Simulated scan of single mutants.
Amino acid sequence: MTLEDIAFEMRKRILKLAWTGRSGHIGTSLSATDILVELYFDQILRYDSGNPDWESRDRFILSKGGGKGSGEKGGDSGKEGGGSAEESR
């Protein structure tokens, strides 16, 4: 499977999740797909999904605010129950 195929399948999943959940920020999720596929599937990032505590793993932080493809509830502030970024400071 090529990187393009993986990205295509991921986009289909994002759309399916948004449709099923009747919500989601598909624009931000879709726009990050190529970057994430390249990092994770072209072995640019060093990680082992079977060993999440591996000390030598790379860390990747993506800050895209509402870039959630699953339509989860609760906001993006990292604060339990949601709230704005201002409220969490």
Rank of each mutant, 00 (worst) to 15 (best):
S49I: 08
A32L: 10
L36Y: 02
R13V: 05
N51F: 03
R59P: 04
L45A: 01
G71Q: 14
H25L: 03
G71E: 14
G66E: 14
G66Y: 14
E4Y: 06
R22S: 15
D34G: 05
D48S: 06
G75M: 05
D34I: 05
D5G: 04
K73M: 04
R13D: 06
R46A: 06
V37E: 01
T2R: 11
S49Q: 07
M1N: 03
K64A: 09
W54V: 04
G66V: 11
E80R: 08
G78V: 12
S70I: 11
R13N: 12
M10F: 01
W19K: 13
S77A: 03
I44N: 07
Q43R: 13
E55R: 13
F60Y: 12
S63A: 10
S56E: 13
I26S: 06
S56I: 06
F60W: 14
L36R: 00
G74T: 01
L36K: 01
P52W: 09
G69S: 14
S88N: 12
E38A: 13
E72G: 09
A85N: 15
K73E: 05
S84K: 14
K64P: 05
M1D: 10
E80H: 05
H25W: 07
R22T: 12
F60S: 03
R57E: 00
P52V: 08
G66K: 07
R11M: 02
G66C: 09
D58E: 03
D34Y: 10
R22K: 15
I26W: 11
D5N: 08
T2L: 07
I35K: 08
L15D: 05
L39M: 08
S77Q: 06
P52H: 02
K68Y: 14
L36I: 05
K68L: 07
E4T: 14
Q43W: 00
K68S: 11
L17V: 02
E87L: 07
K73V: 08
G75L: 08
D34Q: 03
I26P: 04
F8P: 02
S56V: 10
S70A: 13
D76R: 06
D42E: 13
I44G: 09
Y47K: 01
G27Y: 02
T28V: 15
A32Q: 07
A7V: 07
D5K: 09
L17P: 03
F8S: 11
K64T: 12
G21F: 08
R89P: 01
Y40R: 10
L17N: 11
Y47D: 00
S70P: 11
E87R: 12
D53M: 12
S23K: 13
G21T: 14
R13M: 04
E9Y: 09
G75D: 13
F41A: 11
G66H: 09
G27R: 02
A7H: 04
D5S: 09
S70C: 14
K79W: 10
K64E: 08
L36W: 00
R57P: 00
G74E: 04
R22I: 13
S29N: 02
K64H: 15
I6C: 02
I44H: 11
S88I: 01
S88D: 05
G75Y: 08
I35F: 15
F60C: 13
S70R: 12
F41G: 03
K79L: 11
G21C: 11
